[in-house]
Design a protein around this nucleic acid. Sequence first.
RNA 1: GCCGAUGUAGCUCAAUAUGGUAGAGCAACGGUUUUGUAAACCGUCGGUUGUAGGUUCAAGUCCUAUCAUCGGCACCA
Length: 612
Amino acid sequence: METKSPATSNQPQATSYLKENGIRPMDENLIDREDPQYQLHSIRHSAAHIMAHAVQRLIPEAKFAIGPVIKDGFYYDMDLPRTLTSEDLEAIEAEMKKIIKENNSFERQEWDKDKAREFFGEHHQDYKLELIEGIQDETVSIYKEGDFTDLCAGPHVRYTKQCKHFKLLKVSGAYWRADENNAQLQRVYGTAWQTKEDLEKYLFQIEEAAKRDHRKLGRELGLVMFHEYAPGAPFWLPKGQTVFRTLSDKMRNYNLRNGYVEVGTPQMFRKDLWETSGHWDHYRDNMFIFDDEDTQIGLKAMNCPSHMLIFKNERRSYRELPLRIHDQGVLHRNEKSGALSGLTRVRKFCQDDAHLFVTPEQIEHELRKLLIMAKNTYEVFGMKFSKVYLSTRPEDYMGELEMWNQAEASLEKVIKEADIRFEINAGDGAFYGPKIDFIIEDALGREWQTATVQLDFQLPVRFDLKYIDANNEFKTPIVIHRAIYGSLERFIGVLIEHYAGAFPTWLAPVQVHVINLGENHLEYAAHVHKKLLAAGIRSHLDVRNESVNYKIRDGELQKVPMMLVLGDREVENQTVTVRRLHQAKGRSEAISIDEFIANIKAEADIDFADPE
RNA sequence: GCCGAUGUAGCUCAAUAUGGUAGAGCAACGGUUUUGUAAACCGUCGGUUGUAGGUUCAAGUCCUAUCAUCGGCACCA
């Protein structure tokens, strides 16, 4: 299966608030609406104008592109004669404060297009001229604030003083009209709020979120390391590997008991395979390819071609379908250097991948089961999808229209039945079939695709796959690509942030620290530790010559779910005293070793619920 | 890949916006201490300042290239 390797677009989405609420942006005095969401929108949009105004004062040659409202703030794209520095940001902020103090009013005007063309032409606002040409109406709306005039649909606040609580956050490059062939503009991001408290709260939240960044926690908790010799390729350290293996095994077992078979497949293939699959034409730039004698070899970037070959390896009967092939093989994708990011966008990764070979009649049933499996899986982690997309037929689709319509209808039907909220992403399906993508947010609010379900009519044809149906006729199967975690690397990255590093007991790389009080308790601590290991519990014996306080603190920082502190009392009664992670002051009751083992095993007895 | 930023000991940071051959805490190691729920005490080790060039009497500080990372953008059939 081919999750979009890593991510969905991180392009900020302009809020659809106005559209959703059926509000015409040209209404006057919008800030007077009671709806706080509406006011926030107006404040942010106006803050973008004020920022542009400030830039115009400081850098008169500035050309302005677009300045929309986004989640938590706004940005403005500008073409400037020089690159902005962080000092510039401060200067712009200072200038904005002046403008706000001036308390200019926002004034709306309707201009006919020629007047607008003339005005923006005189001011060398090339991007605005281009935007005017894209507007259907005969007239365009203009907002004036002080001596700053902008082409803009609104809405705005009435006076600049209503935008007091803002902060500029960062500058970056951004392509005009999101096309890398166009000029790269400078985008300044900012945030704006109704009250000082809201602003401060937001800034605090950003700081807090950074503390659960998986790159920081991954290092601090000894889960994963990176090295510049292998950019984009995680090294799983013993603890990280434990998490990895636990997740991997859990999913493997989940699949196997739900009718999947598991396979292992080669790591690299001659280019012929990639030509057959279509990847040579469509995906080569993202693959690692090297010469081998008279041909070229490509490291696999996805498992599907292997599974096609496995299907083709035997004469298949309809009685075998659905054939569900699971594979957690290693994949390499040559992601562009600038795209790499911790565990969430890597070059080397594994997916909990599977390909389902089905008859047309089986599609719906299999999809239904898949959605339930995905739902049940994420439920165990207490994770919510921030978005679910149903991506439909693109313009350059392959195959028959009727097949597409049926497939899209099936997907939509089952996703509704599963009671999953989703949005339709029209035209964003793969050329080989429609798909459902599941999106999760990281700590910093960035969105990543994890699970995916994709229908594929194309690969079976390209590989000339056949099965024999009940009438002894050859039929072409349909393939469903699917992954529930998606990339395990990315999933773990998101999980680390979700739990802020404090994994639940079943997943914690180390489940128990056994801590002795003094040298008189060494032997008993070792005994307890040994019993825990024998019971299959991931125990660590901490008998360093350090104070109990020190060792407790260490366990806390390592986010170990349980610590056993053993002293005279425990030795005497052959018990353990349990201290849970983040436990408030005060000591728990002592319990027997066996009781503790039973408790922890019960707690770690977690599994994904089977469909049906 | 593009725009920008960053790179000093294992980690977190210092080293006067105006160059004068690197300091601290934690960790590690050695010793003392034998500890009852978030850091006992003393000592020791540890750095060709990402890499390669250049400017200079002198470079962590300036310049160039390069690598990696970070923030975005683009990409993610």
